[in-house]
Computed example of a mutant assay.
Amino acid sequence: MGFVQQLGIGALMTIKVAVCAYLLAMALGTTFALATLRPNLLVKAIWLPYASIFTGVPSLLVGFLFYYGGSQTLSGLFSLIGMNVSVEVTPFMAAVAALGMVYGAYLADLIRSAIRNVPLGQFEAARALLVPRPMIWLRIILPQVLRLALPGMTNMWIVVLKDTALISLIGLKEIMAYAKLASGVTKEPFVYYLLASAFFLGMTWLTYFVARRADNWANQGFRSNTVNRRAHAF
C-alpha cells in the first residue's frame, strides 16, 4: 500500500506537469497563431526557427537540453544585460518548459487554421455594425474558433499527458518514476505498470467526457448544414 500511495503522489505530479505545460502551450500557440495571421519580417524571424526546432526535435531531447543546459543558458542571458544571476532549473521547470514549447508550435498551427476557417462574413458583419475590435475577437471570433479547434485541442491535451511519462528520465518523480521504483523493489512490474496504465486510461476517459460536454456547449446555437441520413454501402 505504501507503493500505491506513492503512485498516487506521482499521479498528482503528472497532472500538475501536464496542466502547466498545456497552459504554456496554449499561451504560446495563441500568441503565435494571432501573430502569424499577417506576419511581418520580425514575426517570421521568430516563428520559423521556433517552429522548425521544436517540431523537429523530440520532446524528451528538449527536456534534456532544458534540464542540463537551462541554468547556463539563463545565466548567460542575464550576464548580457549586466546581471550576475544564478538560476537553478528543476526537473519540474524543465518538463513544463519542454512540453509547453514543443506543443505550443503544434497548437499555433491548429489555432491559426481554426481562425482562417471562420467565415470572412463574420468579420465584415461585425465591422459593419461598428463592433469594437477587441469585442469582435472575444465575443464573435474566439467562440467559433473554440468550436472548430476543440477536437484538435482535446487530442493535443491527451498527447501532452502521455508524454509526461518520458520526462521521468530527467529525474521528475511522476507516476512512471514511482511505478519503476516499485517494480524494482517488489519484483512485480506487471502490477504497478498496470496501475499506471489504468491511471492514463482513466484520464483519457475523463478527457473525452469533459470534451463531449464542452463540444455540446460550444455548438449551442450552431445549425449544421449536413443532413443526417443513413449510410448506404456501394
Rank of each mutant, 00 (worst) to 15 (best):
M101P: 00
M101N: 12
V102D: 00
V102Q: 13
V102Y: 05
V102H: 10
Y103D: 03
G104F: 10
A105Y: 08
A105K: 09
Y106D: 00
Y106N: 01
L107S: 03
A108D: 15
A108E: 05
A108W: 11
A108T: 12
A108Y: 14
A108F: 09
A108C: 10
D109C: 13
D109V: 14
L110Y: 10
I111M: 06
R112H: 02
R112Y: 01
S113N: 04
S113Y: 07
S113M: 07
A114K: 03
A114N: 01
A114I: 04
I115R: 03
R116H: 11
R116V: 14
R116N: 08
V118E: 08
V118C: 04
P119W: 13
L120N: 06
L120C: 02
G121P: 15
G121D: 12
Q122L: 11
F123N: 09
F123L: 08
F123H: 02
F123E: 01
E124P: 01
E124A: 04
E124W: 13
A125R: 12
A125C: 13
A125W: 15
A125Q: 11
A125H: 09
A126R: 02
A126V: 04
A126P: 06
A126W: 03
R127N: 11
A128F: 12
A128G: 04
L129I: 05
L129W: 09
L129F: 09
L129Y: 11
L130I: 06
L130Q: 11
L130P: 06
V131L: 09
P132D: 03
P132N: 00
P132Q: 00
P132V: 00
P132F: 01
R133T: 11
R133N: 12
P134Q: 02
P134W: 04
P134T: 01
P134K: 00
P134G: 11
P134C: 11
M135R: 06
M135D: 08
I136Y: 06
I136S: 09
W137M: 14
W137G: 13
W137R: 11
W137L: 14
L138A: 15
L138E: 13
L138T: 15
R139V: 15
I140N: 14
I141K: 04
I141F: 10
I141V: 14
I141N: 04
P143M: 07
Q144N: 09
Q144K: 05
Q144A: 09
Q144E: 15
Q144Y: 07
Q144F: 08
V145S: 12
V145K: 01
V145I: 15
V145D: 02
V145T: 14
